[in-house]
Amino acid sequence: MTEKRSLADVLWIVMLVAGALSVLYPLVWVFYQSLKTNQQFFQNVWSLPETLQWSNYKTAWVKYGIGKSLLNTLYYVGLSLIIGTFLTTLNAYALTRIEFKGRKLIWGIIMLSLFLPGINALIPQFVLMRDLQLTNSLTGLIILDSFGESVFFLLLLGGFMQSLPKELEESAYMDGASIFQVFLRIIAPLATPGIVTVAIFKFLGLYNNFLAPFIYLSDQKKYTIGVAMYQANQLMQYTSDWVTLFAGVLIAMIPSVFMFVFFQRWIMEGATLGGVKG
């Protein structure tokens, strides 16, 4: 069923291209500005760089302490991701596959989180973290972000686990396996696609997390990449060192770009799962 190309078609295609350009062009623009000197940039924002100033990236790396902040980010994201994903998987299995007294109550309490805006909890949470001496500490942030419930992840993993036949577990119990073995050897491997999706979303959420590190980390040496770039931008008011900031922002984007390139299908499918489930 092909309809003839008409004026409307031209209009539609123009819209698609305009949409794509509005996403791509600012990125490309920032990229080629990041390879100029500040003088070239100030003179003419359209001219292409005369010589490629890759040294801007080195300057940004040193000036904004990106190396250190990436290490901090790796520590924070890495540990929160591993601990958080493990606990979420374990938790999803217990809450979706095992019958026990009080399960409904626990689900009900978890579902409450959907009605809480979370934003008014920032202050008591900060006071709590201060009382526990977990502020200004990456480890404190890891504790805050690893232990908790997420309805989205529970439903996502629960959906995967519920689709596995009950007989799998029953026959394993017949052979004398313990519940821990069943979880580690049977359920976890079979739920891998779900676990990977959860891990990808946790990674994106943690890497992009700005507010918590911004609130809790006061020591510059402990900044994550997001906070470091925020501070770099604040610094701009006094230095107007544009090309270096461009380079810095692009470095901060690299992990997100890699994740998106490698896991694009997972991310886009996972996003829809969340949307449909609400």
């Binding site: 606990l87 374990l90 938790n91 909890a121 006071v127 709590l128 805050l144 232990f147 419930e149």
Partner: peptide, 23 residues
């Protein structure tokens, strides 16, 4: 198993999410 599987996540939720919201 249930204790081991539920306590960390649910406890963290009670402590870091629900309690501050009530407070």
């Amino acid at each position: 198993f249930l204790l081991f599987a539920i306590t960390p996540a649910f406890g963290g939720y009670l402590l870091f999410t629900l309690y501050p919201n009530l407070m």
